[in-house]
Structures are given as structure tokens and as C-alpha cells.
């Protein structure tokens, strides 16, 4: 007994399509089309200055899998992502628990904690480079004064210092995200749960593991997914701090794409790197998107 939609319903659908049209147009032009071109380009050999190229089929991919560069960058990306993400989580959850308490000037403390997340990566990098400075940097001065080191340290020019520094700066810049997300969740845990546990004789530590952590589980999964995706594709921070050096020891995949395209002038190869990187990220994205859909369903 199905029949045509009512006129009104069709008019509304037409209006809905009109409203989304600008979005669709922009998406097609600047996201969908470039996305497919990137895949298409990865089958070519493009010389950047002249933008001329020839079809090379899958050879870019074959080269990629054989080259040490790719595996090196993948390894660095994983070290950076896992290292920085772990620190973000530890500091983030810890700080959120502290800020959840009634400390003095709590909102000021929260602002101060939040600030690094919002400042430009350029600013963050400039400041940290100044802190890391080998001759006049305050960090070297403090470390020598305390007696941990006898000579100024090269934070960014040697390994493993460079990777550790990048991870630390990354953690400093991005842990506020975890703080805010966890804090919001903490504030929504009903006090009654804690009261009940107290009556049952649970101490602070038992309460943390029995109540707080399980309540945080869902939000933590989302945070880990999102931050893993964002850290994996991080370019600015690493590029500006070390440029991928020393040698290629902090070169991650996004840096490799950039270098291949705009320093080594091979856009086809760069596209191949980018496509493979996207495929790796796709795993995380699908998990995250699935979760989001489930959440909306319920």
C-alpha cells in the first residue's frame, strides 16, 4: 500500500538537499577529489618542479615496501604515538583527578593546564627550543645545578634525546585534552556511588579502582582512539622541533610524505606513502566510527 511521498515531504527533502549542497560541493572539490587524486597520483612518477609524470603502476608501492625509509618512518611513528599517548594518558588522568578535588583557585589552575593545548604549535616549539637551548637554556642550567648532568645536554640533536624530547613536548602540548575529557566524565559520576562504597568500607584506592576507573572506561577508549589518530598524523610539532633529525631518527610518516614531495620532488612516491599511511590509520578510524555509531544508536 506504499505510495508516493506527500508533496510536503518531498518539498522538505528538497530543502534539506539545498541546505547540504554547499557542504557537498566543498567536500567534493577539496576533499573527495583530492583524496582520489592522491590514490591516482601514487601510480605515477611525478617530478614536482615541472609536474610532469608517467604511469608507473604499482612500482611506487613495491619500492616503498622494500625501502628502509618507510619502515624506519613507521617505526618512529609508532614510537612517537605510543610514547606520547601513554604520557598524555598518565599525566592527563592524574591531573584530572587532582583538578577534580577542591584545590585553591581551581578555575585558574584549569586555565593554566588548558593553555598549552590551544597555543600554536609554532609557539610551543619556539618556547621549547629556547628552553632546550644548549648554552643559555634554562633546562640545561637547572639540570646542571641539581647535578644530574655535568655538561650541557643536546636535547634535539642526538639520539635518543631527540625522540624523548619530541615525546615530552608532545605530551605537554596534548595532555590537556585528556584532562578536560576525563574531568568532564568525572564530574558526571554520581556521588551516591562513592557514598555507597564508603559505607561498604572501601578506601580511597579501592574506590578509584572499583568505581572511578570502570566509570571512565568508555571515555578513555574514545580518548585513546582519537588521540592515537591525531598523534599518528602529527606533522607540525615534530617537523618544527627536529625536522626529522638527527639523520632520520625522528622522521615519522607525515614528515616522510612531506620530504618526498617537496624536498625530494617525487610526488608520486609521496602519494604512495600517504596512501599507505591512510590505510594504516583506517583501522583506528573504523573502530572509532563504529563506536560513535553504536553510541548514537543507543
Amino acid at each position: 500500500m506504499s505510495r508516493q511521498k506527500t508533496l510536503l515531504e518531498r518539498r522538505y527533502a528538497a530543502l534539506g538537499l539545498t541546505l547540504i549542497a554547499p557542504t557537498v560541493l566543498i567536500f567534493s572539490a577539496v576533499i573527495v577529489y583530492p583524496l582520489f587524486s592522491a590514490i591516482y597520483l601514487s601510480f605515477y612518477n611525478v617530478f614536482t618542479p615541472t609536474l610532469e609524470g608517467e604511469w608507473v603502476g604499482l612500482s611506487n608501492y613495491a619500492e616503498l615496501l622494500q625501502s628502509g625509509k618507510f619502515w624506519n618512518a613507521l617505526k618512529n611513528t609508532l614510537i612517537w604515538t605510543i610514547g606520547s599517548l601513554s604520557l598524555q594518558l598518565i599525566f592527563g588522568i592524574g591531573m584530572a583527578l587532582v583538578l577534580h578535588q577542591n584545590i585553591w583557585f581551581r578555575s585558574l589552575a584549569r586555565s593554566l593546564i588548558l593553555f598549552p593545548y590551544f597555543i600554536s604549535t609554532v609557539v610551543a616549539v619556539l618556547v621549547w627550543k629556547w628552553l632546550f637551548n644548549d648554552l643559555y637554556g634554562i633546562l640545561n642550567h637547572l639540570l646542571m645545578k641539581v647535578g644530574i648532568i655535568d655538561f650541557p645536554m643536546d636535547f634535539l640533536g642526538t639520539m635518543p634525546n631527540a625522540m624523548i624530547s619530541v615525546i615530552m613536548v608532545g605530551a605537554w602540548k596534548y595532555f590537556p585534552f585528556v584532562v578536560i575529557a576525563v574531568l568532564a566524565r568525572l564530574q558526571s559520576i554520581p556521588d551516591a556511588l562513592y557514598e555507597a562504597a564508603k559505607i561498604d568500607g572501601a578506601g580511597p584506592i579501592a574506590r578509584f579502582f572499583d568505581i572511578t576507573l570502570p566509570q571512565l572506561r568508555d571515555v578513555l577508549v574514545v580518548i585513546v582512539m582519537l588521540r592515537a589518530i591525531w598523534d599518528f598524523k602529527e606533522f607540525d610539532l615534530i617537523f618544527l622541533l627536529t625536522g626529522g633529525g638527527p639523520l632520520n631518527d625522528t622522521q615519522t610518516l607525515p614528515l616522510l610524505v612531506y620530504q618526498e614531495a617537496f624536498a625530494l620532488n617525487d610526488m608520486g612516491m609521496a602519494s604512495a606513502y600517504a596512501v599507505v599511511m591512510m590505510l594504516i590509520m583506517l583501522v583506528f578510524m573504523i573502530v572509532y566510527i563504529r563506536r560513535t555509531k553504536d553510541d548514537e544508536g543507543s
Binding site: 500500500m1 506504499s2 505510495r3 511521498k5 506527500t6 508533496l7 510536503l8 515531504e9
Partner: peptide, 17 residues
Amino acid sequence: FPSSGDIQIGDRVVNDL
């Protein structure tokens, strides 16, 4: 919107209104 059938208010069928 009804998937099928008609709704009338007064002497008007209002499906499209």
C-alpha cells in the same frame, strides 16, 4: 507524514499542507 492513507480536516485533505 503518513506512509499511506489520507487525513482530512474540515473539508480539506491536508496531506500536502
